[in-house]
Amino acid sequence: MAELTYREAVRSAMREEMRRDSRVILMGESITGYGGSYAVTKGLVEEFGPKRVMETPIAEAGIVGFAIGAAMGGLRPVAELMTVNFALLALDQIVNSAAKFHYMFGGQWSVPLVVRTVSGFGQLGPTHSQTFEGWFASVPGLKVVMPATPADAKGLLLSAIRDPDPVIFIEHSLLYSTKGEVPEEVDREVPIGRAAVVREGTDVTLAGYSRMLLQALHAAEVLEREDGVSCEVVDLRTLRPLDYPTVVGSVGRTHRLVLCGEDWRTGGFGGSLLSEIQDRSFDDLDAPIARVAMRDVPLPYSRRLEQQLIPGSQQIVDAVRRMS
């Protein structure tokens, strides 16, 4: 094991795959000399050269379309979109091209593409602070992963690059500097489509992913210490396809569930998740499923305003206390 930051773990997965497989290329805006907006690709152009680490124009739809074509031509592109907000410009290519080709052309070819992008906030203003994983997760043909830990970031990215289908890999800007133990051996893939129980408990299940997973773990500590409530914490890790059996299994033990997300309450990912779990676990539930989500407000710049909107461990604690 080595202690790596989340940022280093993502970089290490790309480096490992690029050393192993000459078909893997990276492309994105300011990912060479600048090292990427969040410095994730720093140092890679020096090792692999500009043919494999491609500096692109600021053209998100073009980048993803180009990467789709490169994938069809036999390469394994990893396209970086600076933030998930900018990924909206590429939504057509992701939804109408990458997610459709294998299906609508009758299985003749697939699109082995990874789109790496970043969710997050921090006084970035309304256009740079949004959370859209639910949009991608609603599209058949895409696989959507959102790791919370450095180990999962590395292992899931390895799986994503090796996967023959388009994978939307959403990192979180507030996780890049978090640290964790990461296996040093090569080939340590974390499978797409498997959630993980990362803390065992008996009274309530907290299910989250990405930054909200860490908030859920913190809430679990607070609830144990202050309320004597035992929380089980499930890291969903993959949003599509979602590992319902692991969530349903946990609810079968705790009989209570709080879904922890940071996207908007209306239309957010937690909504469809809630509906499905209610269908599957209704007889196991002792309380309505609770949901922590962002209020339906654009995230403002002012710290004073932004702070009251961003969901965190306190909202999770409050949700559990309201259940009793």
């Binding site: 379309g65 180009f66 069809m72 031509g73 390469l75 290519q93």
Partner: peptide, 9 residues
């Protein structure tokens, strides 16, 4: 751009 990407490959 998909055609351009294939040409790149």
């Amino acid at each position: 751009p998909i055609g351009a990407g294939m040409a790149y490959a």
